[in-house]
Simulated scan of single mutants.
Amino acid sequence: MKKTDVDFMLTLANLMSKLEQGESCAEQLQEIAKMSDENKESITHQLMDRIASREELMYVDAVLAIGYLDADYVQDFAQAMSAKQTDVSQKQELVRKVLSRTTPYAKTMMEDVFWKNLTMAAINMKDNELLAQFIRKVEQLRDSAEE
Rank of each mutant, 00 (worst) to 15 (best):
E23W: 15
S24Y: 05
S24I: 04
S24G: 08
C25P: 03
C25R: 08
A26G: 07
E27W: 11
Q28A: 08
L29N: 01
L29G: 13
Q30A: 11
Q30G: 12
Q30D: 12
I32E: 10
I32D: 09
I32N: 11
D37V: 12
E38T: 11
N39C: 12
N39Q: 13
K40F: 03
E41Q: 15
E41F: 15
E41C: 10
E41H: 15
S42H: 05
S42Q: 13
S42M: 08
I43L: 01
T44H: 05
T44V: 02
T44E: 10
T44Y: 04
H45P: 07
H45V: 04
H45C: 10
Q46I: 09
L47H: 07
M48Q: 08
M48D: 09
D49H: 08
D49V: 08
D49I: 08
R50Y: 14
I51A: 10
I51G: 06
A52K: 10
A52P: 08
A52E: 07
A52L: 07
S53T: 13
R54V: 02
R54Y: 14
E55I: 12
E55T: 05
E56N: 15
E56M: 11
L57F: 10
L57N: 14
M58E: 14
V60D: 00
V60H: 06
D61V: 05
A62Q: 00
A65N: 03
I66L: 06
Y68L: 06
Y68M: 14
Y68A: 06
Y68R: 13
L69S: 01
L69E: 04
L69R: 06
D70G: 09
D70I: 01
D72N: 14
Y73L: 03
Y73I: 02
V74W: 03
V74P: 03
Q75T: 15
D76P: 10
D76C: 11
D76Y: 10
A78K: 00
A78D: 02
Q79P: 06
Q79Y: 12
Q79W: 12
Q79K: 15
M81D: 06
S82E: 07
A83Q: 00
A83D: 03
K84H: 08
T86N: 10
D87M: 06
S89R: 14
S89T: 11
Q90F: 03
Q90E: 07
K91N: 02
K91F: 02
Q92I: 07
L94S: 04
V95G: 00
V95F: 07
V95E: 04
R96T: 10
R96N: 05
K97F: 03
K97L: 02
K97H: 11
K97P: 05
V98M: 00
S100E: 13
R101Q: 11
R101C: 04
T102V: 06
T102Q: 14
T103D: 11
T103F: 12
T103K: 15
T103M: 12
P104D: 13
P104A: 14
A106D: 04
